[in-house]
Design a protein around this nucleic acid. Structure first.
Lengths: 250, 250
DNA sequence: CCCGCCTCTCGTACGTTGTACCGAAATGAT
DNA sequence: ATCATTTCGGTACAACGTACGAGAGGCGGG
């Protein structure tokens, strides 16, 4: 809000945030826009769903909208910001637990909703950012998680730490599940080829003497469970949190 | 294993694994090689350290070695495989706990070593793969973790599940720490600019009424701790595991 | 009504990327 | 000396993000 320039020369970072928090309504002046910002974000979401984040190119998004590539830059400063917007839009889909639920139920729902989101839109896990964008709906999710834990009487630092633990767990599981699901289906390998390659690996290079524990666990079927155990492990995690809650209450 | 071709036309995936598990020794025939595979992998590691994974280009690696770009393809099938090799090399740096330590000590060391590795080589966290490559030293690490937990008498499925939980926690913390560390230092923003942008965000767009819990926790200093609490949270996680161990022993 | 300004549209172009292709150069085996 | 084999690397292509600027369309003030 500098007084010298009517439009403060905002930095790139500020521009990026402005788009997320204060999307401009179409101005009445000048030529009419064929698209809305939301159109662009939606097209991006469509493209990314079956091309992956690497396959998300401005040209493809533009083609999907039937416009020239450069047209997108009227609505969005660049690819990075488009992805931010897409993430925000995705997080808006979360059905976050209200304040009425007991904390354990609420946290379970919080975790499941996040996992489902990641499984539905795995590209979110591919965004290379170190943290999620500072976007409204992302903060909504964080707020909901914090609120649940803050209601247990835990100290502020503990609350932050524990919601981080849950987030981290959920992302980890989602990542593993996606890996399992997409194994071989990508890279253009048929399932047979993939199986051949893998069994070839086990017989050719895998040395049971170097990896005895892995071998034993494999033979015992320890790797079979997959990650159907999401809820079970989550419960154990919540047990740990409950312990901290009880300790704080005493 | 078709009989028509003496060298079975291995798939790409098999080639990728072959390079990791059976690096070819330089053949005595033909022109002498100026480089070794290890030279290339090391150069890649150097480049990635200060250019990030996005900045890791074949041309830069080649330039760093003083050779033409295409020369690298004599040693490595492509960029993807080079990254695989770099990851394997990085994991070889881990000082994994031996079988002599009590499980809690061993698991603490396991976790700390991994965290240190990720902080030292953050680009590993940027590799977009859904899971780490099936590489010897990566499996060494996994084996070590599994061995520690298998020694506690837990069932195979539990062992797999819990080591996954630890891995996931470590990666999550490392990611957050890197984010914190690199905040603003990248993107060419000076620290002042970054601070300005951020305080601008809080005053301009952040709405305390929309995010009351976040606001309260912020005011209480709940976010200040950063992630110095790695050990503390890890201890709590190990408490949870100890509970499972005791329950299994009973 | 019309002029001028403002906004959107997008063809062209530049730099960068991974890597396919192929000839040239170098070396051990014969 | 000849040949097979291997490394080396220039050239080239497709795809990428996006800077630039000319054109097209539509509103406000005269």
């Amino acid at each position: 809000m500098t007084s010298s320039t009517p439009t403060p020369d905002t930095t790139d970072a500020a521009r990026r945030l402005a788009l997320l928090w204060d999307p401009p309504q179409p101005s009445t002046r000048g030529r009419k826009a064929r698209l809305t910002l939301d159109d662009v974000v939606e097209a991006g979401t469509v493209v990314v769903q079956d091309a992956g984040l690497d396959g998300l190119s401005m040209r493809k998004v533009a083609a999907h909208l039937g416009v020239g590539a450069m047209t997108l830059y009227t609505y969005v400063p660049g690819r990075t910001e488009l992805i931010d917007l897409m993430v925000d839009r995705a997080f808006a889909e979360l059905d976050l637990p209200g304040a009425d639920l007991p904390w354990r139920t609420a946290l379970t729902r919080y975790a499941r909703e996040h996992r489902d989101l990641y499984l539905r839109r795995p590209w979110i896990l591919q965004t290379n950012m170190w943290r999620l964008p500072l976007a409204p709906h992302v903060l909504d999710a964080e707020e909901a998680g914090l609120r649940v834990l803050a209601g247990t009487g835990l100290g502020p630092a503990r609350v932050v730490e524990l919601i981080g633990l849950v987030d981290t767990y959920v992302r980890g599981i989602a990542r593993a599940t996606v890996a399992e699901r997409a194994e071989g289906s990508s890279s253009g390998l048929s399932n047979d080829d993939y199986f051949d390659t893998m069994s070839g690996f086990w017989t050719t290079w895998f040395d049971p003497e170097r990896y005895p524990t892995m071998t034993r666990i494999w033979e015992a079927g320890g790797f079979d469970a997959g990650h159907a155990s999401f809820d079970a492990t989550l419960d154990r995690l919540l047990d740990g949190i409950e312990l901290a809650v009880d300790r704080a209450a005493a």
